[in-house]
C-alpha cells in the first residue's frame, strides 16, 4: 500500500477529560495521530496515557473537545491483557475480525488467520493460535493479544503499554509488527513509560499535556543492551564489529563496559535486531534493552 492510499488518522481537538474528584487527566489536548505511523505516548504513572488510549479508541467520552476517527470501530488492548474464558487467539481474531469488518486494512478471515500465525511465530510464542487464553502466562497472553492486533489490522489500533511482560527479543519483534501495521495504513498508538523499541513519533505526556514534540525519531534512537556473561558477550558481539569506545561509530555499535556480571552495549536502532539475534542465537542472556536517554550519555 503506497502513501497515496493511506487513510486519515485520528484528530483530537481541545480534549479535556476529568476523573472523579475533579482532577483533570487530559487538559485541552490537541493532537493529530496520522495513519501510516506508530505514535508513542510516553509518560509517568498518572500522566493520562491510558485515559488518552481509551478516548482515542472510543471507549471513554471526553468531558470537552472533539475526537475524529476515520472509522467508528477500533482495536484497544488495555494495560492488562484480558484472559477471556474458553477463548483462544484464533477465536478472538475470528469474532473481532467480523465485528471490525470495514474498519480494517486486512483481508478476509483466511488472511487474518495467516497473519495470526505469522505474528505468533515472530513473537516467539510457545503456544499456538488455538491455546486457551486462560492457560497462558502473562507474557504469552500479551503475545497472543499483540498477534491478534496484528492479524486484525484495525485502521485505528491502540495498545496500552504493549511491551508489558515481554522479553527483550519479543518486545523488538512486537515493535516490528507494529511498524508493519503502520506501513499498511493503520493509525497505531502505543503508550508506555519509556519510548518503545519502534515508533515513528513520540509524545511525552505530563499532567495531561504534551511537554515536548517528538524528541527523538526512532531511527535516530540508540539503545543500551545488557548482556551476560560479559566474556562471551565481548567475543560474540565483537564479530558484529562492536568495539570498545563511546560508539555507535561506523560499526553496529560499541561495547561500553564489561563488568563482572554483564556487559553493556550501545546499539543504534538500525542494528538492534541483528545484535539481539546474534546474542540470543549464541545463548547469551539479554537482561535489559532500554532506549538511551540524556541522563545515560
Amino acid at each position: 500500500m503506497g502513501p497515496e492510499d493511506r487513510l486519515d488518522g485520528v484528530e483530537l481537538r481541545g480534549l479535556v477529560r476529568r476523573v472523579p474528584g475533579g482532577r483533570t487527566v487530559l487538559d485541552r489536548l490537541d493532537l493529530d495521530l496520522p495513519a501510516g505511523a506508530v505514535t508513542a505516548v510516553v509518560g509517568r504513572n498518572g500522566s493520562g496515557k491510558s485515559t488518552l488510549a481509551r478516548v482515542v479508541a472510543g471507549v471513554d467520552r471526553p468531558d470537552a473537545g472533539t475526537v475524529r476517527r476515520p472509522v467508528p470501530r477500533a482495536f484497544l488492548l488495555a494495560e492488562r491483557a484480558p484472559a477471556l474464558p474458553r477463548c483462544s487467539a484464533a477465536v478472538l481474531t475470528d469474532a473481532l475480525g467480523r465485528a471490525l469488518r470495514g474498519s480494517t486494512v486486512a483481508g478476509d478471515g483466511a488472511s487474518a488467520r495467516h497473519r495470526l500465525h505469522e505474528a505468533l511465530a515472530a513473537l516467539g510464542s510457545t503456544h499456538g493460535p488455538d491455546a486457551a487464553l486462560t492457560r497462558l502466562s502473562k507474557g504469552t497472553l500479551q503475545k497472543a493479544h499483540l498477534a491478534v492486533a496484528y492479524a486484525l489490522a484495525a485502521r485505528v489500533t491502540v495498545l496500552d503499554e504493549p511491551e508489558t511482560g515481554l522479553d527483550p527479543a519479543a518486545a523488538t519483534a512486537a515493535g516490528e509488527l507494529l511498524l508493519a501495521l503502520a506501513d499498511s495504513g493503520c493509525t497505531v498508538v502505543v503508550t508506555g513509560h519509556r519510548p518503545p523499541g519502534a515508533a515513528h513519533r513520540s509524545l511525552l505526556l505530563e499532567q495531561g499535556r504534551p511537554v515536548q514534540p517528538d524528541p527523538v525519531r526512532d531511527h535516530e534512537r540508540v539503545y543500551l543492551v545488557d548482556v551476560a556473561p560479559p566474556g562471551r558477550a565481548a567475543a560474540v558481539l565483537g564479530h558484529l564489529g562492536l568495539a570498545p569506545g563511546p560508539g555507535p561509530g561506523p560499526g553496529p555499535g560499541a561495547m561500553l563496559a564489561a563488568g563482572q556480571e554483564q556487559a553493556r552495549v550501545r546499539v543504534p536502532a538500525a542494528a538492534l535486531r541483528q545484535t539481539l539475534r546474534a546474542a540470543l542465537d549464541a545463548g547469551l542472556d539479554v537482561t535489559r534493552v532500554v532506549p538511551e536517554t540524556e541522563a545515560d550519555r
Binding site: 479508541a57 472510543g58 470501530r73 484497544l76 488495555a78 473481532l96
Partner: peptide, 16 residues
C-alpha cells in the same frame, strides 16, 4: 464487568 475485556469489546463494537 472486567475493564480490560469491556474496553476491548466496546472499542470493537463501535462504542459503549
Amino acid at each position: 464487568c472486567d475493564q480490560a475485556t469491556t474496553s476491548m469489546l466496546a472499542a470493537v463494537a463501535g462504542g459503549p
